[in-house]
Write a protein that binds this DNA or RNA. Structure first.
Lengths: 150, 150
DNA sequence: TGCGATTTAATCGTGTGCGATTTATTTTGC
DNA sequence: GCAAAATAAATCGCACACGATTAAATCGCA
């Protein structure tokens, strides 16, 4: 990227979101490499650290991901020994995802990452907070549009 | 997504960017389906509509994408009859990507998409513009951090 | 001039993402 | 109580996206 020649892309908000997402992704890649996690895997772990033992749909609802994305991802976390996947005895359709000891222990390793990212932005906290709220407003607008079309 | 239970994710700017990117992606999917384009393909077409006949690296530099991403994508555009890919006679290492007539003609079909997306956000133009600038500031911060680590 | 370093695309392997479909289970409506 | 509808997860095919590597062409400098 770096210094692109002026282009119509510079006026497009969607492209700014698109490339900012890539920038975050690249930063997280280096931060998460020691933990052996990808960014989406990290998001799942954050949810489980907060509330252990959730269903696939429960996780997907919070992240906005389909089971077609989550199932393979969760299998990789299982293979890495961080979570267990077991059919719910109450409702055999559901699969409950829970932390293993190793998965729980990883929480400590991840402690500093949040503040590390905040520092990497080079922006004051208040500005980041207001940007977050503006983005949420935008996302809600886009989502409601999609929902209205159904 | 919709109404997630309150979670630590709600405080994370990176997740807001991540999910806003998905929201844009879903919206563009429906808008671009009639053109037979994906969103990254659309970005490439925008660059070519603006400046025809560019190298793979030239396009990649503007989009922040590697040749490992672009080469298959460009081959799909070529297969769809929208662009040509030919080795540069001046420098045989380079591949020049240019619009076909069909690729150029598609420009008209894409005319309304920009304003359509702007409307879908449900936010006033000035707000979108300031959000774009804030995001650019954030992205530059993240990128410079990554560069500094090299 | 010629050879090593650099540049440019392409290739390969891994990991998201999604839509459409499938399978198994539970809920419902009669 | 049982067939139809609904729900949950998994599966499949396709399309990004990146890092590492490779192959070919060009550059640069001794």
């Amino acid at each position: 990227m770096s210094d692109s020649p002026r282009s119509i892309l510079d006026q497009m908000l969607c492209f700014e979101v698109y490339s900012t997402e890539h920038a975050f992704s690249r930063l997280y890649k280096t931060l998460l490499a020691p933990l052996g996690l990808t960014y989406p895997q990290f998001l799942v772990m954050i949810l489980l650290w907060e509330t252990d033992d959730q269903t696939v749909n429960g996780i997907g609802g919070q992240l906005g991901l389909e089971s077609s994305t989550l199932t393979p991802l969760l299998k990789r976390l299982e293979k890495a020994g961080l979570v267990t996947r077991v059919r719910d005895a109450e409702d055999e359709r559901r699969v409950r995802v829970a932390l293993t000891e190793a998965g729980d222990a990883l929480r400590k390793e991840a402690k500093g990452i949040g503040t590390c990212v905040a520092q990497a932005t080079g922006m004051p906290e208040a500005e980041l907070k207001s940007l977050l709220l503006d983005l949420r407003k935008l996302r809600n607008g886009l989502a409601s549009h999609g929902a209205a079309a159904d």
